[in-house]
Design a binder for these strands. Structure first.
Lengths: 254, 254
DNA sequence: CGTTGAATTGACACCGTTCAACGACAGTGG
DNA sequence: CCACTGTCGTTGAACGGTGTCAATTCAACG
């Protein structure tokens, strides 16, 4: 395991495991220094609200957060963030976000002002490109969510989202062998999968009855990872770690 | 209507209607000159395949294209492109795409090499930011697809996607009063909505029986736009034209 | 006028929603 | 230590949305 998180406690997990774009020490140093403020939040703290003007972006240092959109009283989770995610970097370009950003459990968050990002854009083209890559990666994940919501039934959707979270934790050095722990509830999972808590409960039950995985108050235990990922139709390529879409560690300049 | 498309026949519709970032004449000129090659394609021409290394990005000048992902023989349409869309700009960062890019009907496409884009990144920070905005906008659209797939039933999903396409055509100056024309089939719509052609047929039938809109071989006629967009749960804010999320035409620098 | 792809229809099984109620568990304060 | 409390999870039954298979009609075009 790489030592980035120890050397750079705030930014060390950013793009970790995404070998496409390895960050130089100098770049990590610049990024680390750009994090002007760090705060700890409790559960369900809204970091950014839909429509609010934002003049800084936030990186998740520890914990989990979700992107939510609420319409007609119904909440949809359109994204989940794990440590190392530069969560609302796209706010730098969009200025107002179309969704909310909410902590799930307790979370530590670092902030970078858009003024600072604008400076980086002028002086650090390679770092800029890394940032751009990061938002493109988020978009690739979003496409995958679209795909899975379109194609899978509720039980396999749930398996997919859980498999993704697990893999993303792996990438940033936070994975465990037999599963992982999140502050997710079954109701949260339902809001990710676009189904109801009742049905999500039955879906999870079918996973455990099949001897594949168990979900208990946020504790995910996977008994058979292969069967689990197969059922989930999970292929990690879209996360752009090492794999099919991997290209090598050089900056593929052109 | 703005005259951009006449002055800049290749790039003139790029970000048109997105007043957040108005492009200067100089910037449009640079972009227009960067389009080194223009080609016309017939229907169902694959422009880029999943996993293929790409060293150029393509802008849609005329016609329609879709992003597709095929898994286990089933096709999901994860995005649709209208004229003016810089379709695989994210390929500049990702280098290999996780999806295919396919023309729908006949289409005219312009190509910009990644070498050229890398030069622009070094010399044109503002234009770079416009490009970044463009990919962030794609991501916002993708989030909306996630949302609607999660929350709506098939008939309303279809209405939403059609409402979106109509509005995007409006933004780039290609809208009509009572509807629009696309090369979409009911089967394509089904692949967007994550349902079957049979069910999509019934969903569209229910729209026309309700006196709201009609879909006939790609010809969309909307009898009651207000009822249509209400049924679709369509709020164009996420397209970042003028509206709730709009901020003004100045480059919000920081 | 026959061919082809697209759209349409019916019957039936299954997935998912809804409503309503109950059970399990962790944290709190007496 | 126990009772209380609220959140989370679990269950059943009725109903409506969606998938599937198979057959048919329709529109466009050479």
């Amino acid at each position: 395991m790489t030592a980035e998180p120890e050397k750079y406690p705030l930014s060390g997990r950013f793009l970790l495991g995404r070998s496409r774009y390895v960050m130089s020490d100098q770049e990590r140093g610049i990024f680390e220094d750009s994090i002007e403020q760090v705060e700890e939040f409790g559960p369900s703290k809204t970091l950014t609200s839909r429509g609010e003007i934002c003049d800084r972006s936030s990186i998740l240092i520890a914990g989990f957060a979700v992107r939510t959109i609420i319409e007609h009283g119904r909440r949809q989770i359109v994204g989940i963030q794990v440590p190392g995610d530069f969560m609302d970097l796209h706010g730098f370009a969009l200025k107002r976000l179309d969704h909310n950003l909410v902590t799930l459990g307790p979370a530590t968050v670092g902030f970078v002002s858009h003024r600072r990002l604008a400076e980086i854009m002028l002086s650090q083209p390679r770092l800029t490109r890394l940032f751009w890559f990061s938002t493109s990666l988020d978009a690739a994940i979003q496409r995958q969510w679209t795909l899975k919501l379109g194609q899978l039934k509720a039980d396999r959707r749930a398996a997919h989202f859980l498999a993704e979270i697990w893999h993303r934790l792996d990438l940033v050095g936070l994975g465990h062998r037999n599963g992982f722990r999140t502050p997710l509830t079954q109701a949260d999972l339902a809001d990710m999968c676009g189904t109801t808590p009742v049905h999500m409960n039955r879906a999870l039950r079918s996973l455990s009855k099949a001897g594949i995985a168990q979900f208990r108050r946020g504790n995910v235990t996977v008994w058979n990872r292969k069967a689990f990922e197969q059922l989930a139709d999970f292929n990690p390529a879209y996360l752009y770690g090492r794999g099919e879409l991997y290209l090598g560690s050089a900056m593929a300049g052109d």
